[in-house]
Every structure is written in structure tokens, then in C-alpha cells.
């Protein structure tokens, strides 16, 4: 099910480096939320979503309810539906058990590498696609546990770590600023989210602002008959 080739190692290496750093930061944040390295490892494998894990931990530190954490993480993970939809045509002939595991291990970065590989190399193997996902996941889970373990020995500048999380969101966000309507969707939801944050309980402002603005933009776009 896994085929590790030279091109797999070459293409996965930038992801591995990035996940090592980000995973350690996530593990350190987890330690502050009271998680142990073992739980951090289990969480990284079960949840395996960089930003959703960061958000979940940040919300756990604020004592948000598991319901509102689940709902927020769901909306944050919705973009993954875009990724697996885009890759679906390439995995049509594979077994269901394969596509289930493959979908489970697909992140923003693995999606980008795999889509480019499927488009450029006609001979991109299912095992190679899976190897990209699983090597990234292994790196992520281990670096989370290591970061969590190390955090108990070093003094952590919590304000800085939480800003790094914001910077991470900014970095991912920048990839979705390719048209005017997408920029409006982002900034509109941002402004609404700030406004709702002060009046809506359980940290639901993120979910509400996202659904309201993206829904409105989609409705306008369908009504106007143009899509970009």
C-alpha cells in the first residue's frame, strides 16, 4: 500500500521540515492545555489536522464546550472537502479501504503535492500518493509528542506561540486570495466574526461568521451567474 521512491522523498521533504517545526509548536501549546506527550501523539493521529488541532487546543485552554469545539473544527476542516473532491477522479479505480485511509491522511500540503504529481506524472502510483500522506502524518505525530515533552523543560512565551498560530492562519489564508470575491469573503467574515465575538456565546462566532458570509457570497454568485 506504500511505495517509497526517490521522487516521493524529494517531494515530501519540504512538508516534513515544515511539520517538524509546526508540530513541535503545536505540542508545546498542547502541554500548556494540560495534555501529555502520549495524548498528544494519539490526538495527532486521530485528529490529524494541523490547524484544527491548534484551534481545538486553543479552545480547550479557554474551556470551550466539546460541542462548540467539534463544530468549529468541522467548519475549519470543510476546506478538506475541496481537496478530496479534486482528487476523487484520480483515485476512482482504487479500493474503498485505500481511498478511506488516503482521504483521512490528506492535508493542505499533501493535497498540493499529490495533485501536482497526478497532473504531471501519468505513472504516479497509489502507493506513492499514500506514502506522501503517511510520512507527513508520522512526522506530524512524532513532532507533536516531542514538542509536548520538551515544553515541560523550557519556558514558553505563550503570547508569541499564540501569535504564531495567527500567522499560520494568515499564511494559509493568503492562498485563497486569488480573486476579488474570495478576498471579500475573507474580510467580510473577519469583520462579522469580530462583531459576533462580543455577543455570541461558546466561541460560535467563528462558525457563524464563516457560514453566513460564505453562504451569502455563494448565493450572490449563483444568482449573478458568474463563478471564479
Amino acid at each position: 500500500m506504500i511505495t517509497i521512491t526517490q521522487r516521493v522523498l524529494k517531494r515530501v521533504s519540504p512538508i516534513v521540515v515544515g511539520y517538524l517545526v509546526l508540530g513541535m509548536a503545536c505540542g508545546m501549546l498542547g502541554e500548556k492545555a494540560g495534555l501529555t506527550p502520549g495524548i498528544m501523539l494519539a490526538m495527532s493521529i486521530l485528529v490529524y489536522g494541523g490547524s484544527s488541532q491548534f484551534i481545538g487546543i486553543a479552545m480547550m485552554m479557554q474551556g470551550a464546550s466539546f460541542f462548540s469545539i467539534g463544530l468549529t473544527v468541522f467548519v475549519v476542516s470543510l476546506r478538506n472537502a475541496l481537496f478530496t473532491s479534486a482528487l476523487a477522479p484520480y483515485v476512482r479505480q482504487y479500493r474503498d479501504s485505500f481511498t478511506t485511509l488516503f482521504a483521512y491522511g490528506l492535508t493542505d500540503e499533501c493535497f498540493a503535492v499529490n495533485l501536482a504529481s497526478y497532473q504531471h506524472d501519468k505513472d504516479w502510483l497509489p502507493g506513492e500518493a499514500m506514502a506522501i500522506n503517511l510520512l507527513s502524518m508520522g512526522t506530524w505525530a512524532l513532532s507533536n509528542a516531542i514538542g509536548c515533552y520538551l515544553a515541560s523543560f523550557i519556558h514558553l512565551n505563550l503570547a508569541l506561540v499564540s501569535y504564531i498560530l495567527t500567522a499560520m492562519f494568515l499564511g494559509i489564508w493568503s492562498n485563497y486570495m486569488s480573486s476579488r470575491s474570495l478576498v471579500i469573503s475573507g474580510i467580510g467574515a473577519g469583520i462579522l466574526s469580530v462583531f459576533l465575538a462580543t455577543i455570541v456565546p461558546y466561541k460560535l462566532h467563528i462558525v457563524l461568521a464563516t457560514l453566513l458570509i460564505s453562504g451569502a457570497m455563494a448565493a450572490l454568485s449563483i444568482k449573478g451567474g458568474r463563478h471564479d
Binding site: I55, V75, V76, L78, R79, A81, L82, T84, S85, A88, P89, V91, R92, D96, T99, S162, Y163, L165, T166, F169, L170, I172, W173, Y176, M177, S181, L182, V183, S185, G186, I187, G188, A189, G190, I191, L192, S193, V194, A197, H205, I206, V207, A209, T210, I213, S214, G215, M217, A218, S221, I222, H227
Partner: peptide
């Protein structure tokens, strides 16, 4: 999608979700 395609409205809506979620996360921060 192994069997069929997504409804059009759903695809359009999904298109606008990612920027909205990151805007909604970053601005309050």
C-alpha cells in the same frame, strides 16, 4: 464522488468557505 459529482451549489459554496474561515479566525485574534 467515486460514483457521481457534487451538486453545483455545494461546490460554489465550498469555494467561499476557506477564505471566510481564516478571516473569521484571524480578525478576532
Amino acid at each position: 464522488l467515486k460514483k457521481k459529482t457534487l451538486p453545483h451549489w455545494f461546490e460554489v459554496w465550498l469555494h467561499y468557505v476557506p477564505p471566510a474561515i481564516f478571516g473569521a479566525l484571524v480578525f478576532p485574534d
